[in-house]
Amino acid sequence: MITMSIDEKLSLNTYKVYKENHIIVDKEKCITCIDKPCIYCCPTNTYSWENDDLIISFEGCVECGTCEIVCPYKKIRLTYPPLGHGIIYRYG
């Protein structure tokens, strides 16, 4: 199996998922944001656009910080899951 879907890739990882979303998005600009780079730049496919709303599936996030930087309106704030939660790399 040379290539896999992103969901299959994420399923390889170990996460200790925290109950609350650690990615804070002010969605005020999203509807008019033409390219929505958060969606295609995120390496874990955390963002998607459904029914005119930005959906955030934070469970697979690896806390890299890309989305914060690529959002043209600086509307994303990445906080870190507390108490050792989130991604736990076993190889790294």
Binding site: M4, L12, P43, C64
Partner: peptide, 14 residues
């Protein structure tokens, strides 16, 4: 070069 490699982890970092 990677044939037969069994995926174990997927990661990303800046």
């Amino acid at each position: 070069l990677i044939e037969g490699g069994e995926p174990k982890e997927y990661s990303a970092h800046l």
